[in-house]
Design a protein around this nucleic acid. Structure first.
Lengths: 208, 208, 208, 208
DNA sequence: CATGAATGAGATTTCATTCAT
DNA sequence: AATGAATGAAATCTCATTCAT
């Protein structure tokens, strides 16, 4: 947090904000999502970005660093979106807050489906960087925060046997994964978000 | 050359074949789980199995076939376990059936954690064989069957907005994944299974 | 970025590409001839060409493609040489035409002894590409054309029992092979060509 | 030539005369001809012979020795056939002797087409044993002997520029090869043999 | 002797990374 | 900075040969 490191970080940020770097990240997002985190070749990413392979290495130290930067930049966006949504909904009743949270996730799913494909692959894959794992954790932590707030507000049970945060995370993931398994993705509509929240809070059991 | 010795020799040969093949599959399970589906090298698998590389190819046509065989054999075990559990619980009330189902999954999780690591990786990874994806689908289909039975028995809502089967699948997955994210795996106790079922049917919301 | 430099650079690049490709083909010609079409290793070809193995694959898709390209390029040369010679001799009496044809073959034998070694090996070997076989056929077809012209001009018998084209081909081949069997190659002199033609037209029998 | 070595040779011969060894040689002949001298695998030969791979090594030291033995045994047959034919024709006029010689070769071609395919491949291929090359030379030497006799009898010109023996060898080879190039093998009839001899002695030129 | 599973050296091919231009 | 040809370590797969049964 001293000036040196901060200005170093600053320079990195500037670099990444540059048009070429962005093009590379976008190309990486597309190619990694299409071909898989392990199979995608640097050549293909370069070609998609419209630059030479060598250029990739002017912006990112190596393949791993490119993936890390990609994950970093996209995660920030997701986390910001969710945090903003949560902040704006702070005064609403908990169920609404949860719906807003889920909607934010849904919308991000829709915008960054390729990125999420990467992230889910990264979640389980064995990678040299911890970055992707960290990103997954970032979403997981928001789930924990939301659930914690729910508990605090008395809207969520304080169960010690089931980790509701993990369940929420699993349900979000399931919504996204469903498309891949069934070939029939869920639309990010408020109705769907509300229905998911309803399930999360009241369960799948018939009320009888 | 008499029948006894000849068939005995035959059986012995087969037994040895089977033993080597099993050793290779087990080695594969371990190494793939440790190093990842893509990074694991055939050399390592051979070394772990205590055989030479060439031997792998005496039993499996190629790397892909080895993965396919591995997934096949383990999936069969999981599916059989679940189907047997479900059959034995047919007469119980639905909630109990669900608990039995979840317990079967939990137990398999415990026994075959390495394999599941592979399977989850396979779920999202881009692979050359469809086999692993099929195995994921097999578990998903059991979730669908259970949920369908619940609907039929009037124990599960017939919601069209939320796919409860996908949610059940997501929750099971979340239980397994939790260990990897938090480093604190859930014990496959009946209590935990019951708690998960309770969440699935009644939700996380406080009853008030 | 002006047109001159850009196109100049382009041309330079192409020239270099061409030079490397040629070097690889030449190295291939030498190594295949020395070690045999099947035993020659890509490593050796690369070493002889003064490049790394990987470079071979920047120019030729695989081993087979390298052989095919090699055969293609050399065959074109042989065929062009022969066709040009035949065309230039069109007005001469048939025996002269035949001598010109044989001389063209002799000269090519001398210049491309390594390549011919490859081609003869390819003629009888079982190969994955048909390319080499096609090249053999190309020479065979020239023999057919020459013999057909001889028949047309009344200089060659129209025998139905003996395929004179095959005989001519066999004799040319024998001249080349002789060196390998006896270690005493025939010089590509006009005298030797004339003598071969004399044999082909008049036979080995003493005139008495 | 002492008793030891002679009895050693004797034992070898006996071994090769054994049913198993013969079966292996026959299998080798077929498989090598079908798949090529380099591509044919020991496993395939064993399978075709109806024995286990290990058995091959009880009869032949290694792959190379198997090829050598194969060539040896078949060459002996060819050479004996030719020598016998030549001996029986010793009193006939030279042209007849030549026809007998060619017929013997033709007949052997017909009976042992697979073996010849191997031999021709061996002629040009780069092999570890000299055996096949020696076999080619054996046929070549018979050509030389016949031609020499022709010269002696005044039936063949004593040309120093053209090696008639090589030409005869080349023509025989051409007859055999023709089938492979044109897919239309020459029948081993006396007429065809006579026509070939006619060509060899009188040439392809029209007599005018 | 026969067997055939095991062996492991060796060959091909890929692709992240470098560096001269 | 951009380029893209060259690099060569590494991974997969083959198959002649061995040897315990």
């Amino acid at each position: 947090m001293n000036e040196d490191s901060s200005s170093g970080k600053q320079r990195l940020r500037e670099k990444i904000r540059g048009a070429t770097a962005s093009a590379i990240l976008e190309a990486g997002e597309a190619v990694f999502a299409e071909q898989g985190l392990n199979s995608a070749r640097m050549d293909d990413i370069a070609a998609r970005a419209g630059v030479a392979v060598g250029t990739l290495y002017n912006y990112f130290a190596d393949r791993t660093a490119l993936i890390a930067a990609l994950v970093d930049s996209r995660r920030d966006e997701l986390i910001h979106r969710i945090d903003k949504a949560l902040a704006s909904a702070e005064e609403l009743p908990f169920q609404k807050q949860l719906e807003v949270f889920v909607m934010a996730a849904f919308q991000h799913f829709k915008t960054h489906r390729p990125f999420l494909t990467i992230l889910m692959e990264a979640e389980s894959a064995h990678l040299t960087t911890a970055k992707p794992r960290d990103s997954v954790r970032a979403l997981f932590e928001r789930c924990e925060a939301v659930v914690a707030r729910g508990v605090q507000l008395g809207a969520v049970k304080a169960d010690t046997l089931v980790d509701y945060a993990a369940m929420l995370h699993g349900c979000l993931r399931a919504v996204f994964t469903r498309g891949r398994i069934c070939g029939d993705p869920v639309d990010p509509t408020p109705e769907n978000a509300a229905a998911l929240v309803e399930f999360f809070l009241r369960g799948a059991g018939s009320s009888g």
